[in-house]
Amino acid sequence: MQLKVEFLGLARELAGTKEGLVQVGEQATWREVVRQLAAEYPALLGTVIIPDHDACDSDMQHYKLAPSYMFNVGGRAMVRDLDMPVQAEERLLLMFAEAGG
């Protein structure tokens, strides 16, 4: 399935685009979306997307979102578990939220 990802903030600056398309399998989890994003937009690596050493298996490099970055689905639901399955046709935001100073 194809997912439209809206990049916000630094993710947009690094990706160089406001939105992108990611192709994942029908049974894909959010972790697969992160991996595809890392492949399509390598500039995100190291800042927005980082290696997930806890989730490594022998054959595949796993990734996760860096702390303070997150996926939001449809402007309502946060993705809390990258191992949950992706729902089709979802509007996906790659965003962060931190105020202060």
Binding site: L8, G9, L10, G75, F96, A97, G101
Partner: peptide, 23 residues
């Protein structure tokens, strides 16, 4: 380092689109 790049690059005004996107 990379953890604070978002502040250096866009600062807190980056929150405008984030907050708008989630209503």
């Amino acid at each position: 380092g990379p953890g604070t790049l978002k502040y250096r690059t866009l600062g807190t005004p980056a929150n405008v689109l984030n907050m708008n996107a989630i209503g």
